[in-house]
Each structure stands twice: as structure tokens, then as C-alpha cells.
């Protein structure tokens, strides 16, 4: 009899060239993985380490020899002997334009990563003039747990994937409408407490622009008292059920201000439930709960 101690995994390596440098990565890796392995920093927006790539934002595109168009590095799997350029004029142009397009229609004021990349590539959203159409959405405050500010939404699908197939399987929200009118919404754009939402906050955790924001953070920002530089993060284990979820407690002034979970831990892969995500308030004796 055979004793299989572990799931069988066979790893075949694939070699490709990135910016002239030979890189070897396991079969099934993406070009983005190869870039990371080669020490090349790549901007991403819609990519998430635990999400199936939707390759919608196109900011991660690279030039692939033999391909008419640029290809999204986050989703394109490596094939032997691919030749990839990540810093050609074409690549820089597309990255700049994607960031510029987003900046021209979306409030990126709290999207620090994107702003850094915009600066890096010289994106200038003002080129489209003051009358350029924007998302133009009011903040939705519908409960005490998190807010939705779709003025800041880049329609990256991450929240939809996290709420759907990739983690939570609740499907409370979907991409709706079409074209520039597309929006993330519940059915008939109803309020969240009337929807299927179970307040796991997994969508909030993956949002790259702070369009989805924990209410604690929103309130502190409103009070001009959100100070990331004064915050620290402690990893511990959730105090509720026995699954053993890792929690990252973000604290400011000795109070918990938000809870996340590590993306790379095999128990949660960054996801939590309502108790782990929001059930910490008793620590501070805030029993304004019902």
C-alpha cells in the first residue's frame, strides 16, 4: 500500500527572457511572476494574489515578441523561450495612458500605489480638460461596517471576484451596466443591508483605491485623524470559531482601527468572516451594538 503524505505536485521549470535577462519559473506561472522573480517591479491594479486574473485594467501590459498587441503580464502564462520587454516605449506609453485615463475619471486621492506609478510614468490626467466625464457617484453609507465610495472605483472587478467565485461565494455585488456607465452594484442598485451581503469585508480588503473602506477608517479620515504613519500591525489568531484565522490588527492610539488577514497564509488567504473582520469592538468595551 502506498502512503501519500501530500498532494502530488510536479514542478517543471520554464525559461523565458525578460528585458534580456534569463528567468526560470515553474510551469503555470505568469509573466508577472517571472518579472517578480527577475526583480522587476510591475504596476498592477486588477491583479490580486488570490484572485483569478481578469486582466481588465491593462496597466501591467508588457511587449511579447511575436504578439501584435501588448499582453497582460498578470494573466499570460509563460511559455518556453518567450521574449518579453517590460520597459519599451510601447509598454511605457500604454501604462502611462491607462493611469492617465483612470486619473481623468476617477478620484484617486487615496490610491497611493497608483499615484506613485502615475508619477513614475508621467501620467497627466489634466490633458483631457476640466469637462472630462467622471464616475460622479455619491458616497454610500448604509451601515456601520463599511462604506462604498464609487467615485473612487476603477472597476477592477476585485471586489466582485472576492465576493464571488474566488473566495466568498456570496455574489452580493456584480458589475452592472455597460461601457463608461458600468458600476459595481447589488441587484437594482439596492442598499447593501437588503442584499445578500454577509459583511465579510473581503471586498474591502482587496479594493485598490479605497473605494470600499471600513467605516472606522472613513470616520477617522472625516475627522482628519487617519494617521497610517502612527499605526502598527499585529498578527494574531481570531478569537471566535476554531478555524484559526490569522488576523492583522491595525492599531492607532492603542485602539484597533481595522482588521485584515495575510494574503499568504494557508488558512485564510486574506479572507475573513464578519466576526473576525468586525467582531473586535468588544476589546474596547464599545458596546454600542444592539
Amino acid at each position: 500500500m502506498t502512503n501519500t503524505m501530500n498532494s502530488p505536485e510536479t514542478e517543471v521549470a520554464v525559461s523565458i527572457s525578460v528585458d534580456g535577462q534569463a528567468v526560470s519559473v515553474p510551469e503555470g506561472s505568469t509573466i508577472l511572476d517571472a518579472c517578480t522573480a527577475a526583480g522587476i517591479d510591475t504596476p498592477t491594479i486588477c491583479y490580486g494574489p488570490n484572485l483569478t486574473p481578469v486582466n481588465a485594467c491593462r496597466v501591467c501590459v508588457v511587449e511579447l515578441e511575436g504578439s501584435r498587441t501588448l499582453v497582460p503580464s498578470c494573466s499570460r502564462e509563460v511559455e518556453p523561450d518567450m521574449v518579453v520587454q517590460t520597459d519599451s516605449d510601447r509598454v511605457k506609453h500604454s501604462r502611462k495612458m491607462v493611469l492617465e485615463f483612470l486619473g481623468s475619471g476617477v478620484d484617486l486621492s487615496q490610491a497611493d500605489d497608483l499615484n506613485a506609478w502615475s508619477e513614475h510614468y508621467g501620467a497627466d490626467p489634466n490633458r483631457y480638460g476640466p469637462d472630462a466625464e467622471t464616475m460622479n457617484e455619491p458616497v454610500k453609507i448604509e451601515d456601520d461596517l463599511y462604506i462604498r465610495d464609487y467615485d473612487k472605483c476603477v472597476l477592477c472587478y476585485k471586489c466582485v471576484s472576492a465576493c464571488g467565485d474566488d473566495a466568498q461565494h456570496t455574489f452580493a455585488i456584480s458589475m452592472t451596466g455597460r461601457g463608461f456607465g458600468a458600476r459595481i452594484a447589488t441587484e437594482f442598485d439596492g442598499v447593501l443591508p437588503d442584499s445578500a451581503c454577509v459583511y465579510c469585508g473581503n471586498c474591502v480588503a482587496v479594493c485598490p483605491t479605497n473605494a470600499l473602506q471600513f467605516k472606522t477608517e472613513f470616520d477617522l479620515r472625516q475627522a482628519a485623524n487617519w494617521r497610517p504613519e502612527d499605526q502598527s500591525v499585529t498578527t494574531t489568531i481570531c478569537s471566535y470559531c476554531g478555524v484559526g484565522c490569522n488576523l492583522e490588527l491595525h492599531t492607532q492610539d492603542e485602539r484597533i482601527v481595522k482588521v485584515t488577514s495575510p494574503d499568504d497564509h494557508s488558512v485564510t488567504w486574506g479572507n475573513l468572516c464578519i466576526k473576525g473582520r468586525f467582531g473586535w469592538q468588544y476589546v474596547h468595551g464599545d458596546s454600542d451594538g444592539d
Binding site: 496597466v59 485615463f101 483612470l102 480638460g129 466625464e133 476603477v154 455597460r178 461601457g179 463608461f180
Partner: peptide
């Protein structure tokens, strides 16, 4: 094109609107 873009990817979703404007 502004109306018919599916809206999925940034170059087309935003590009089609900016071209129209």
C-alpha cells in the same frame, strides 16, 4: 463605441469616452 464598449478594460472604456468628448 462609447455606447458599445463593454466597459471591461480601461483603454477602451475610458478611451472611447475621451475620443467622443
Amino acid at each position: 463605441f462609447k455606447n458599445e464598449s463593454c466597459g471591461q478594460c480601461v483603454p477602451c472604456r475610458v478611451g472611447a469616452v475621451r475620443q467622443h468628448e
